[in-house]
């Protein structure tokens, strides 16, 4: 089972016993995705707390 990353549209493999709410990391662009639904498989970019490395 794969989902399409919402940021870079790469295919992201879902772990077999994947459940709603599970967090995945897109191997291509590093975005953290949250599984919103399993049928059909929908994912959204998970809100990531942004470490403050800014100046």
């Amino acid at each position: 089972m794969t989902a399409t990353c919402t940021v870079c549209e790469a295919q992201v493999d879902l772990p077999n016993n994947c459940c709603e709410g599970e967090l995945l990391i897109c191997g291509d662009c590093g975005t953290e995705l949250e599984v919103i639904a399993l049928d059909p498989i929908t994912v959204e970019e998970a809100p990531q707390v942004q470490e403050d490395w800014g100046e």
């Binding site: 940021v7 870079c8 662009c29 590093g30 975005t31 942004q50």
Partner: peptide, 21 residues
């Protein structure tokens, strides 16, 4: 992203930086 991936994914010395963090 598709253009970057297509160009660099098979290059031994090139990596595309992640979007996050």
């Amino acid at each position: 992203w598709k253009l970057f991936r297509a160009q660099w994914s098979n290059e031994p010395f090139v990596s595309v930086s992640p979007a996050k963090p």
